[in-house]
Amino acid sequence: MSDNIELLSIPGKWDLTYNYTAGETISKFLIEIRDNARIMATKCNQCNRVIVPPRSYCERCFISIKDNWVELEPTGTLEAYTIVTYKFEGLPDPPYIIGYFRLKGADTTIPHFLTGIDLSDLEFARKKIKVGLPVRLIFKNRGQREGRMTDFRIEPLQHDR
């Protein structure tokens, strides 16, 4: 490496626009959230697994399950979590809790924020969270729902802030 050569670089930026296609199965899932405030999953009748967010196929039995819908209760458990305290570029402002949640009757988990926990004292907040924590889904009012995962929030079932 030469010590005395000025090493140059030039700035660049990727600024691209997309429209992400949901497909038939996820469209139905999101429309049920938007119009009826309920969580629908697909079920494989061969291995009996209930999958949410729904998939049109069972990846284990390798059969289509796109027409086999079941409704899930809006309750479940926290199965994995972290408290994010770092500001990642383009991602939400910290602090926030991200978790994976198992809805009652489901065999898979969904990612979401865990809300309803006071994050002003993180040490204290951490002690209130553990794997297995019972949670519930709270849907936005009808007019505010837009067919997205953010149409509902998730908070501890026992709310004792």
Partner: peptide
């Protein structure tokens, strides 16, 4: 998944953090 998972700030560090908190238990 851009449709069902993009809203929650997921990335590799917080994914591993979730694996880690489970691992600690």
């Amino acid at each position: 998944d851009p449709v069902v998972a993009s809203d929650f700030g997921l990335n590799i560090i917080n994914h591993v953090a979730m694996e880690t908190s489970r691992g600690m238990e």
